[in-house]
Nucleic acid binder design. Structure first.
Lengths: 340, 340
DNA sequence: AAGCTTTTTGGGAACGTTTCCAATAGAAAT
DNA sequence: ATTTCTATTGGAAACGTTCCCAAAAAGCTT
């Protein structure tokens, strides 16, 4: 029933040569005679030989695998990123092992441990929203395993990072709202410890400052990414004595949830209140009104992250940690189009 | 700089005991003395021991890894499925290795080979749209590696399958259109060889037949999933002398693309033409008008697929191939709401 | 024909585990 | 005191590779 896979030994016995010779023939070593090489290749095919990657990994101390840890797989941004990573990895002969932290720090810790046990050649990670300490990553660094953060990065550790210019994107978004005549611009931010929350918030603040618009603390709210949470915050904003005339949300998901509440309350977007999101999720183009947003090149982020970590894996000597910052693009749609 | 990971041998030397003892202590074997066990555990922690999963795999002939091959990672359906798989796998102590075929048969073949090389304990696959033969999967079956198809299944091989009742979903969708008064119902199908295309098409046909509506061949078009392709087909349908008053699309993506063309031509949905999709992608709820669709429990599909393959892995003796068919749910939204 | 280099091959260790089998020690039983 | 038993430990093989080193074979040179 269950047939044992063919090994080098099987081929060697079949041909009456040594295991070493078979190994050399299959790995394309130059010292092996052309005829024997041909015979080995033929026998390998006949016996359906498939190299045992596990044994190769043990022997070579390289797994040709890169680990990926993301908060979730389901949101479009992360799945697009992973798509970019996987395609680049495959191109270079690497495979990917994927874990979701489900936004839980504890799960992230055990994911990291698992990746270490698995002896991945490198680790790409986007932090969970709960992550505030980085001790769980020290073993990775101590062992010299290449580590690259993407999107939700860690600014304390001396590693490479791939991200977009969150500050600039948020700045452009906010400035755009100002230019369309909004003056009471609220910001629904994300979990405070996340780099993206901090940077986008700062971009928002700096845009206000540039245009001499005073910051009103009550217009800045931190949300977890949960739907109920966003709804509550939106109601809070709309219930203010002097409610906002625009909301800049930390991402499209939050923006969309807020829009639902606004529409439910019978208010018009953008006439009563303008909306801007972040990321350019597919939904943003289709929702009514279509959502102005800051586009992040998700696939590119993955592609570049993978490329970068592979370089670090294959040329560890000339590696210096760097922060790769990609450009965002403001996509103006109907949720912010109003006569200024 | 790069520190070598601690091995059992390191712990053994550190304590002056044998490797066997260390191994037994860490694996919780009963024969080991309580004091030595404790000492070993302490030393392991002190030296940051992390079991070498590669060595364990080689020795045990089990990788505790399940492979996943999907056409793409980026579409919501597949990422949701994978999320379900990964969470279930993690719960049972397994990890996942993921490949995208990018809808290419050649890539799928090499993905399968890679999975074999990696000695995955089981393989979950959703076929590429180009896949028409299954020779590349025979080695998997011959070696007795559990293989489970999901969503885009193979009906020729004697393996387990997890899918939704595509026929029933399509039937309900078509019947719904008929009930709202549509009589010239077109169907934009998918690649012909895909099981989902065949089954949804048949559901559509059977609903027409049940209601004595003659089938018009010119109203049934097969599309690749490419956007341009869908646009061309939609124009073709609308240009017919007797154009359709409804379109049932093989999935939401196709439906949304068709809607764009319809709106572009200045026609009203659902008044001029009603639309129904399949899958219940997030976009379908937000597009204007909101899209009536047949909901597939994507996460559940993944969860159940993983659960099933794990049972097959761990209890191969009492395994019998089965087809697990999940229910769909028709979600009526505005794209098909018209006074009948 | 003997010595030399070059080409090709084989043997065996090693990677880090697990596990079978044997060995030791002490305790219990006679 | 001798035997028998149990509890605990160590040694070594094995999983399938790769690669170092030595050995054999073949081709050159003198």
């Amino acid at each position: 029933m269950k047939k044992e896979p063919t090994t080098l030994r099987d081929i060697a016995i079949n041909l009456g040569v040594s295991i070493s010779t078979v190994s050399r023939a299959l790995s394309g070593a130059p010292e092996v005679n052309d005829q024997t090489k041909e015979a080995v290749l033929k026998a390998a095919k006949k016996l359906n030989y498939e190299p045992n990657h596990v044994a190769q990994s043990l022997r070579s101390n390289k797994t040709k695998t890169i680990g990926i840890i993301v908060p979730n797989l389901i949101s479009h941004f992360f799945s697009a990123t992973i798509s970019g990573i996987q395609n680049m990895a495959a191109e270079k002969g690497y495979n990917v092992m994927i874990c979701q932290s489900n936004e839980s720090f504890a799960t992230e810790v055990s994911n990291v441990q698992m990746m270490m046990s698995h002896r991945v050649d490198g680790l790409l990670i986007s932090l969970s929203k709960e992550t505030e300490t980085y001790d769980h990553l020290h073993p990775i660094l101590n062992r010299g395993i290449p580590l690259v953060f993407f999107d939700r990065v860690c600014e304390e550790l001396n590693t490479s990072r791939v991200m977009v210019d969150d500050h600039d994107g948020a700045f452009k978004a906010t400035e755009h709202l100002i230019e369309t005549g909004c003056r009471r611009i609220a910001h629904i931010s994300g979990p405070e410890q996340l780099s993206i929350s901090k940077n986008r918030r700062q971009g928002y603040l700096d845009a206000l400052q540039k245009h001499n618009i005073p910051v009103r603390e009550e217009l800045i709210l931190h949300s977890s990414f949960k739907e109920e949470d966003v709804a509550v915050h939106t109601h809070t904003l709309l219930d203010l004595p002097n409610p906002p005339d625009a909301i800049f949300a930390v991402n499209d998901l939050v923006a969309v949830q807020a829009m639902l509440v606004i529409k439910e309350r019978g208010m018009k977007i953008p006439e009563d209140i303008a909306m801007v999101g972040f990321t350019n999720t597919p939904v943003s183009a289709f929702i009514e009104p279509s959502l102005t947003t800051v586009a992040q090149p998700a696939y590119q982020i993955g592609h570049i992250s993978a490329k970068h970590i592979l370089e670090q894996i294959n040329h560890p000597q000339d590696f210096i940690p760097q922060s790769i910052v990609l450009k965002t693009e403001l996509i103006v749609r109907n949720s912010s189009r109003r006569k200024a």
